[in-house]
Design a binder for these strands. Structure first.
Lengths: 212, 212
DNA sequence: GCTATATTTGAACACATGTTCAAATATAGC
DNA sequence: GCTATATTTGAACATGTGTTCAAATATAGC
């Protein structure tokens, strides 16, 4: 009936449903039956199009990581060598935050999936490092240009703290909403963006200026 | 045979095994059969002692959160009203980091479990807020004493970034090890502790001093 | 030593899981 | 319109899941 009128293809519908459910309950908390039911397709189709549940999960991640990393790499490459730390951090986190803010539900769910796998040892090397380390390496290279006297460890640990703040933001668990009595809303990514860059920039400066 | 010579009780053995496995694969990635096999006990015993798998999970969290939150609350209460932001942050994160560092495998695994649920929407209100918000509220209260002119939102968002850095540290995924070619090691919590306090303190100062 | 309670055992239950496959159907190339 | 390929269907498979329970055993109180 209206299945034919749906403009989105089967693989896309599966990816969208999987993304939404993985964001809510993580990889092991979601079954193929839940995904196919939400997508309105047969149970066998994810395996046909993506080989396995794991293949589907990887496809969910890669679909947007490719787009995202291009944007982030471009933003980094657009900077001059004398860019301030604010600009560096902005280039690193800005594209991701903007996508989550203006990209619709899909991008927001995607960020929530990434946040969960970022803190799970199971997906670290297989997904996180494989997908996101190239941009991280370029970011760190530029931080070291900006802070030439900084010790190597200080740069990496600063980056580690940045990653944590970023991940917690993407997770969108609603904890800060609850804690603040809705004074702050985790979905207000523009409010966060506004504060995240100066906060982290101050941290980088303190740690990487080499005053110690 | 040697079961009687084991000094640890059955509930404790179950908690320890569950903790270790949850740290590795999360709640849904672990079955009761994996837990009981590792603990060397019968399948029915977790349900007998903890009611259900969910009850076991909650017990894993609460066993150490009680100890931890007492220590953290004491550390906060030991501060004078004119304590610097470094001292506030130290009191908030210090006890947790020290336990993870010197408390043995159990505490390290515990921190990894907490890190995973901290970024999962599923456990936010049920566990994270319920267990850890009281200390958070006291911390925030004291930050506002230290920075009386700070806007409410700035304080909460600063706390949010702190939480992210803390969570990423506890996760111990090994990503920073990989990224830095083992220049940095996620298990070196003392190295992190040393840098985390100044990094975050600089962020709080930048955001909460009220200079706009 | 006996009794009442607490714990452990071992098996079974009903249901959910990812994956597979031949048959049916739709699609595209000529 | 026909043929070859791509996709979809619907059912089944073997295995894993949390939970339950009566029977067996251990433990503690007197």
């Amino acid at each position: 009936m209206n299945k034919k009128t749906d403009k989105t293809s089967t693989p896309q519908r599966i990816l969208d449903s999987a993304e939404a459910l993985f964001a809510e309950s993580g990889y092991d908390g979601v079954s193929l039956r839940m995904i196919t039911k939400l997508a309105g397709v047969e149970l066998a189709l994810p395996n046909y199009h993506f080989g396995s549940k794991l293949g589907l999960f990887r496809a969910v991640i890669q679909r947007r990581s490719v787009i995202l990393n291009n944007e982030r790499m471009e933003a980094l490459n657009a900077l001059s060598d004398r860019a301030e730390s604010e600009d560096l951090i902005e280039a690193f986190i800005g594209p991701f935050l903007r996508r989550s803010l203006f990209g619709g539900e899909g991008w927001r769910d995607y960020a929530r999936v990434v946040a969960q796998i970022a803190n799970s040892p199971r997906w670290t090397s297989e997904i996180m490092s494989a997908e996101f380390d190239p941009v991280a390496i370029e970011f760190i290279r530029r931080v070291r240009v900006r802070f030439p006297v900084a010790k190597t460890e200080d740069v990496y640990w600063s980056f580690h703290f940045l990653l944590g703040a970023m991940t917690m933001t993407f997770a969108q668990t609603g904890r800060i909403d609850l804690l603040s009595g809705d004074t702050c809303r985790g979905s207000d990514l523009s409010e966060i963006h506004l504060r995240m860059v100066p906060f982290l920039s101050a941290g980088f400066s303190r740690l990487c200026k080499g005053s110690t």
